[in-house]
Design a protein around this nucleic acid. Structure first.
Length: 858
RNA sequence: GGGAGCGUGGCGGAAUUGGCAGACGCAGCGGACUUAAAAUCCGCCAUCUUCGGAUAUGUGGGUUCGAGUCCCACCGCUCCUACCA
């Protein structure tokens, strides 16, 4: 018998697979397709355990579906643009490309060492001009379609990364990458109008049955659809006189979901960044205090705001507006708790019903008019029929935000108030009638800010011409190449690179300047999965027929950290490309699996600073890639966090070893090395063990198939262990001679061996191929073999043990034929528990076939 | 503040539509083999027990013949998100 030696067989088989070009994927033909995709990695060094888990899951699915008879597309590439490469280049006085490509080579060899079945001919590297050329081309198609805008507005600026960030990249006020506090700046930047797709991105979440609920929920929350109304307030003087025929300049509009509370509006608040604020206070005594407030507000960081209990600050503008619903004059304040880029940047303040307004009113001694009350409120009886404003202060500690009855609210008094309430509908209808309001849907989703002030990214293909404005680079001139001669360590950037900047205008031919911003790296990852279907196309990003035949991705696997960012952007790209007529599907990823993290044995995240990182290469060196793959799938369900336990890994290594030897025994090739001396003491009869093995062989094939379809790799492996245990028992109670002499047993044993090897092939492919060739005597690789079939009839036991319960407590066990009639089972059960039912009345006996009988007595 | 999820032996976890809780594995304990150890093989392994049983899936209720699973309340933990009007 040959010893199991992963260190010898794994590299050898990897070589054989490569030589045979085993994982080459031609364009798919008439066979059904499966597109199995793992999120491509950022080449930041060698791979870590998180990668091993992610890609082991994908590889098992790819190999399984391949054996199941699908044409499987299983590609790999690199998300190769990004800031870490620039930082490394600065540190080492080198070029980002050097660091990036070196890391790609390292990771690629690690992937090969893991035995992953990628078609390396389809590799997509985001920083290759052959790829980013088409990223620029898509940008220009979006531009033509009106999905690109360049505008000046307040943006998030990361002082450490020295670039702007998209909204999605600011987490609790900090940069998603370096965790520095983000600042607000007014800058002219490039945007993708993802908000044009807000409603569809929300609606189509319903189609994504194969996505985790929490991911869909997070996206829905991020899109943040809110139904309400816009209400126009007209500027008026201190006596409450408003122009009879106000112009747009006289009107300030607010968005509200609670128009029902309009009678409780006792002041009005503008965001510090509100456009037109300067004009309102210019030349008045209020100008300086307002300016001071605006300056102070700029210093409040988003992180402080995120703490939640940040104290509100405001200043009176000296101006008033008229409440359209009751003609009352309301003072206009400016305050730092109103955000400029949601709604209109102005809010009507109703302190009795909104906690923020409440706190502000308390601080600045503004009226709190109770206009919505719970029926158990002490004020309710006094005010329930009061249409006029008679009470303008309350002794509450907080605002009343729940549903209630409207009071002091003119004709609406007595109506139910709340979100989407009767009162809200009535007030909006009245506003519409008077032309001072209209229904409005707001989204929290902002347009995607895609420009970055960094070198190592895809250049935005635009040219700024004094005469023609900002124009696209002609398609035939794409790609705009990143200049290679740049010294980042010396502080050079694209904006200082004269040779790059200076060009001619493609429209008028006069000297012009190139755009020096690059695109957000998330633009690269928004369509790479489409490029895999046609990676070498130099006429288009991809051929529509090819992309439509493989897409959408059947199973996408990656980290939950992309629940919003990458997955939302990819959905947007897909819809935009569809509307450009380039693809014919609506959603990119049919099924999504978010794998859990790999933690250390104490449940801590692995990190270099903690010094608790388990390096995949060390584990492979000790136990081999097959054991690492199988272990990482066995120890936890794929979507749960996994605590690394090296003893568990050693256990899987022993399991592979044990089954390795078992296969030799099952086919009668073990000879003197057999582990299974007959040991009949207290054992099953050989014939029973054979029967059990046959049943397990069929049951387990069915179970493993079901488990694979549901991503339950851990229970699939457990089931294979059960089959191996049944084979072990059979080997123990029979001798090699018995098995050789009995053709039925010999066939059973060989079938069991081949079945186990095939079932484990997706997890432990080198181990399986080696046994398949050398012990089982087959040519070729299991990647090309078909998955074992099973007979459900043979998976059934002919006798079953049932628990007999009396009033829900197990009192006896009976063994009956699997196909026994219900009446016979009931009779046998009653007899078995006669002692417990004596003297009592049997009310009924519930028979659950194959499970139990419950006898209810009084 | 808003949203989502999770609580099962010493540990990781299993229980597919409500049907024998603890599959499978790790650790531990005992045995075989060995001069010995490792490896390997076999067996035991929720808790208490007067050996009849009793108690057990975070806590307390409820629905049901039957609840880890469904409903309500509470406790604890994790993740996401946030002055979004």
């Amino acid at each position: 018998m040959k010893e199991y030696n992963p260190h010898e067989i794994e590299p050898r088989l990897q070589g054989e697979w490569a030589k045979a070009d085993l994982f080459h994927v031609p364009d798919n033909d008439d066979k059904p397709k499966k597109y199995i995709l793992e999120m491509f990695p950022y080449p930041s060094g060698d791979i870590h355990m998180g990668h091993v888990r992610n890609y082991s899951i994908g590889d098992v699915l790819a190999r399984y579906h391949r054996m199941r008879g699908f044409d499987v597309l299983h590609p790999m590439g690199w998300d190769a643009f990004g800031l870490p490469a620039e930082n490394a280049a600065i540190k080492h006085h080198s070029h980002p490309a050097k660091w990036t490509y070196a890391n790609i080579e390292t990771q690629k060899s690690s992937f090969k060492r893991m035995g992953f079945s990628y078609d390396w001919d389809r590799t997509v590297v985001a920083c290759d001009p052959e790829y980013y050329r088409w990223g620029q081309w898509i940008f220009e198609q979006f531009w033509k379609k009106g999905l690109v805008e360049r505008r000046n507005s307040p943006v998030n600026w990361c002082p450490s990364c020295k670039t702007v960030l998209a909204n999605e990249q600011v987490i609790e006020g900090r940069c998603w990458r370096c965790h520095s506090e983000v600042e607000k700046r007014d800058l002219t930047q490039w945007y993708f109008k993802i908000t044009d797709y807000a409603q569809e991105l929300l609606d189509d979440l319903d189609q994504l049955d194969g996505w985790p609920e929490r991911v869909k929920q997070q996206q829905a929350n991020w899109i943040g659809r809110s139904e309400g109304a816009e209400v126009d307030f007209v500027l008026c003087d201190a006596d409450g006189n408003a122009p009879a025929d106000p112009t747009d300049d006289d009107i300030i509009t607010v968005f509200t979901t609670r128009a029902d509370t309009l009678f409780g509006c006792s002041f009005f608040v503008l965001a510090p960044e509100y456009k037109g604020l300067d004009a309102l206070v210019a030349g008045t005594a209020y100008e300086q205090p307002v300016k001071d407030l605006v300056e102070a507000a700029k210093k409040v960081t988003a992180v402080e705001r995120a703490q939640g209990n940040h104290e509100k600050h405001g200043a009176f503008t000296g101006r008033y507006v008229m409440n359209p619903i009751n003609g009352q004059k309301v003072p206009v304040w400016v305050a730092d708790y109103v955000v400029a880029d949601y709604g209109t940047g102005a809010v009507m303040a109703v302190p009795c019903g909104d906690q923020r307004d409440f706190e502000f009113a308390r601080k600045y001694d503004l009226p709190i008019v109770p206009i919505i009350l719970g029926e158990d409120d002490p004020l309710y009886d006094t005010l329930k029929d009061e249409q006029n404003r008679v009470v303008t202060s309350v002794d509450w500690d907080e605002a009343y935000a729940a549903e209630g009855r409207l009071v002091q609210s003119g004709p609406y008094t007595g109506m139910v108030g709340g979100k989407h309430s009767e009162g809200e509908a009535a007030v909006v209808a009245a506003l519409e009638e008077m032309g001072r309001g209209r229904r409005k849907v707001e989204y929290r989703l902002r347009d995607w800010l895609i420009s970055r002030q960094r070198y190592w990214g895809n250049p935005i293909p635009a040219i700024h011409c004094e005469h023609c404005g900002t124009v696209p680079v002609p398609e035939e001139d794409l790609p705009v190449m990143l200049p290679k001669d740049i010294d980042l360590a010396a502080g050079e950037t694209l904006a200082t690179h004269e040779e790059f900047i200076n060009t001619t205008c493609p429209v008028c031919g006069r000297p012009a300047k190139r755009e020096t911003d690059t695109m957000d790296t998330f633009t690269c990852s928004s369509w790479y999965y489409m490029r895999y279907t046609d990676p070498h196309n130099d006429q288009a990003p991809f051929d529509s027929a090819k992309v439509n035949s493989w897409m959408p991705v059947d199973q996408y696997i990656g980290g939950i950290e992309h629940a919003i960012l990458h997955l939302l952007y990819s959905r947007f790209y897909t819809k935009a490309l569809r509307d450009l007529g380039l693809v014919d599907f609506d959603e990119p990823f049919t099924n999504l699996l978010c794998q859990g993290m790999v933690k250390d044995s104490n449940g801590e995240t692995m990190s270099k600073s903690k010094g608790n990182v388990i390096a995949p290469e060390d584990m492979i060196a000790e136990y081999g890639a097959d054991a690492v793959r199988t272990y990482i799938l066995f120890m936890a369900p794929p979507d749960k966090d996994l605590q690394w336990d090296e003893e568990g890994l050693a256990g899987i290594y022993k399991f592979l070893n044990r089954v390795w030897r078992q296969v030799y025994d099952l086919v009668g090739a073990a000879g003197e090395d057999t582990l299974y001396q007959p040991a009949n003491k207290g054992k099953e009869k050989p014939a029973d063990a054979a029967k059990t093995l046959l049943r397990e062989r069929h049951r387990v094939v069915g179970k493993v198939g079901d488990d694979m379809e549901r991503d339950n790799f851990n229970t699939a492996i457990a089931a294979i262990m059960e089959l191996s245990n049944a084979a072990g028992t059979f080997l123990h109670v029979t001798s090699a001679e018995d098995r050789a002499a009995n053709p039925e047993w010999a066939a059973l044993a060989r079938d069991a061996a081949e079945t186990i090897v095939k079932l484990l092939a997706p997890m432990a492919p080198h181990w399986a191929d080696e046994l398949w060739n050398t012990v089982l005597g087959h040519e070729g690789f299991l990647y090309n073999e078909s998955w074992p079939t099973f007979d459900p009839e043979k998976a059934k036991a002919d006798e079953v043990e049932l628990a007999v319960q009396v009033n829900g407590k197990v009192r006896a066990r009976i063994t009956v034929a699997a196909d026994a009639a219900e009446d016979d089972v009931r009779a046998a059960a009653l007899e078995a528990v006669a002692a417990h039912t004596e003297g009592k009345q049997v009310v009924k006996a519930i028979v659950i076939p194959g499970r139990l009988v419950n006898i209810v007595v009084k």
